[in-house]
Nucleic acid binder design. Sequence first.
RNA 1: CGGGGUGUAGCGCAGUCCGGUUAGCGCAUCUGCUUUGGGAGCAGAGGGCCGCAGGUUCGAAUCCUGCCACCCCGACCA
Length: 490
Amino acid sequence: MSKELTSRKEDYSKWYNELVIKAGLAEHSAVRGCMVIKPYGFAIWEKMKAVLDARFKATGHVNAAFPLFIPKSFLSKEADHVEGFAKECAVVTHYRLKNAEDGSGVVVDPEARLEEELIVRPTSETIIWNTYKNWIQSYRDLPILINQWANVVRWEMRTRLFLRTAEFFWQEGHTAHATSEEANDEALLMLNEYANFMEQYMAVPVIKGRKTENERFAGAVETYTTESLMQDGKALQMGTSHFLGQNFAKAFDVQFQKKDGGLDYVWATSWGVSTRLMGALIMAHSDDDGLILPPKLAPIQVGIVPIYKTDEQAAAINEKVDEITKALAAEGITTKYDDDDSKRPGFKFAQFEMQGVPVRLGLGPRDLQNGTIEVARRDTKEKSSQSLDGIVDYVKNLLDEIQENIYNRAFEHRAAHTSTVDNYEDFKSVIKDKGGFVKVKWCGSNELEDKIKDETKATIRCILMDDESEGKCFYSGEAATQTVLFAKAY
RNA sequence: CGGGGUGUAGCGCAGUCCGGUUAGCGCAUCUGCUUUGGGAGCAGAGGGCCGCAGGUUCGAAUCCUGCCACCCCGACCA
């Protein structure tokens, strides 16, 4: 395996694939389209999970677990929903294997066919609403605010590590409410929680908006989304939050007794983010030397490399590093001391860089003599010599600075790659040559959206929340009803 | 599902056209010595159902037939 990555300029897609492998985040498994998330990659996901889970709980939600399998008939109860997912479902048809008669191994036992086939959940609305039906009789049972952390399966044609895999991990929130307004507020609340997490922890700026009918979740009345822009100018949908109206309540006949008497169907939301966030995190910040992680999500915040010739020097360095590590740990900063004697310092520097460790410390005999330590920051690759006294405060501040810097960098990149146009010629040339988001006035026609997609590959990523609907549609010249962002997307 | 490509050591590949010693190279691994402030050097060692199953042949990684898997490009998607 070569030590270098393909550069982003040369082949962005290849760069991404190699980076995921070489940074030790994930790899392809024996099962087509399914990945193995390796310990280092999973450590990042766990940090994301911990922050999100705490936010869900702080906003009143609780966790629960629903089955992996869903009776096939459930899926078809909501018409749009089945249409959206039917084409990518894994189906369980049998429950037993037996030894092949010719001794060639095991075969499916044809006697063991399931009465009703089960599908592996592509999402859990149906099984959950079938359950909620039993839990809800009165307005006193509402709201229900439940989240589950789970894996789901969507049989994708073409997959890419983290960005699109046949099996992926996510969380799905499913809430039930007495009023339309309350449910819609919930969907917006979670959209904001997502956006805050993405910006404050992942250091990825996002645009909040609504999906067009074409792009909406199958079964939703309204889909809210957080959209980000990657370094290659393509957009990535990071998380979605859906106002489901009464669609699932009606499909599963979930009614409740209102306070003032009378029955009504329950109002619903669902919202989710997946391991796709890993893909966004990787693509948003990293460079040709490897991963760049935001300090708040980096499993290792500070990597430490000893430089020595003699055993005496090594012993003295070990002692000093031990001191520093403990002082950093006391401030809640995670470190990794790479004292592997079989590797040379240069190799370790490159390794920490590939893994995106935000800050690297180098300590050698010269430093011990001068009371200094070498500090290298991953985001800018700047190196400096700092006094050993006060190194903890220095590192602490530096981590904050890196977190801020990579956010600002991503923000500026997005600003530089967001164009506003008012005619189709300009639109086509921007999409083709520059990429990024293209902001336009829009008349709201589904057919036009499809046509533009066919011609340019660009789709409407979102309808801006605070849209001023003045002016004319950039394509049809009709009165514009909204402002939208187009982009080529992942 | 259509079109193209690839299966040879843990990884990346050569060899296949035109059959013929013991199947080779780089990286990685192991042992030893020298090294260590930006991906170390030398010496030695281990590691192969040549994707699978048939066939042709004195002889098959190489030729023929069938199958399987994976990758890329399209249609579909968080």
